[in-house]
Computed example of a mutant assay.
Amino acid sequence: MRLDALLLDLGNVLVRWEWRAAFAGLLTDEEAARFHAEADFGELNRRLDAGLGWDDAVAELSARDPWLGRMLAVYRERYPLTLPGPVPGMADLVAELRGLGLRLVGLTNWSAEMWPLAIPTAPVIGTLDGVVVSGVEGVGKPDPRIFRLASQRYALRPDRTLFVDDSPPNVEAAAALGFQAVTFTGADDLRRDLLARGVPVVAP
């Protein structure tokens, strides 16, 4: 099947994200794990990515447990530490794909406040044709609405677009909507996948 475009996740595809790094030197591993569990951080992060404001999130946790609220405020303040650098090999691959004439669009679950902090860490994000951000749109992956929004906004044909994400549920959702889709495990594996699809990138 012909490939005209890639729809790329950002976190842990173009830029590394490690939530624990925000607490480095402040909390022990056990304390960080306690925060993650008691704050239900996975669900809280999903809500932030879907548009919940950070002030509201801090207030909500503080009402439940002042320590949790303080730790979320610390996490927010030290958020740049959670972005330690670009994903190895991806900037070169994106540049190569652009040179081949493919369109490149980002589709990320990220809060509206925090996602711009990723660009200085992984400047390749700024070279994309555009980025659809869940926290801006108020809906995130794997909801079909955000895939349709990206397709409409950037005139993407799902059957000619490869969706790349490190989350299998998101990949499954994209495939169900007719996208070509692959779970990201590293730049070299993505190169192999692209070669198998007939895209003449340099072999790893």
Rank of each mutant, 00 (worst) to 15 (best):
D29P: 00
R47T: 04
R34W: 12
A39S: 10
N45A: 10
A37C: 08
L44Q: 13
E18V: 01
R34E: 13
L27S: 03
H36C: 00
G42V: 12
H36N: 03
A21P: 05
H36W: 01
A32H: 12
R20V: 14
E30H: 00
R46V: 14
R46A: 15
A22N: 04
F35L: 06
A33D: 09
E31D: 14
A21L: 12
F41E: 07
N45E: 08
E43K: 14
L26R: 13
E18R: 06
F23S: 02
D40G: 13
H36E: 01
D40Y: 09
H36L: 05
A37L: 11
W17M: 04
H36P: 00
E30M: 01
E31G: 12
L44H: 12
G25E: 05
R46K: 14
A39E: 05
A22K: 03
E38L: 14
W19I: 09
W19G: 10
L26Y: 08
F23R: 01
A33S: 09
L27D: 00
D40S: 15
G42K: 13
E43F: 09
A21M: 07
F23C: 04
W17N: 02
E38P: 12
H36I: 01
E18N: 04
T28D: 07
E43L: 11
G25R: 00
R46H: 15
A37V: 06
R34L: 11
E38V: 10
W17L: 04
T28E: 10
E38C: 14
A32I: 10
G42Y: 12
E30S: 02
R20C: 08
R47H: 06
A39C: 08
W19D: 12
T28N: 07
L27Y: 04
L26T: 11
G42S: 12
A22G: 07
E31I: 11
A24H: 15
A32R: 07
N45M: 09
R46C: 15
E30Q: 03
A21Y: 08
L27V: 03
E31R: 14
T28W: 04
G42R: 12
F35C: 02
A33R: 03
R20S: 13
D29N: 02
A33G: 05
D40F: 13
A22Q: 06
R47M: 05
G42H: 13
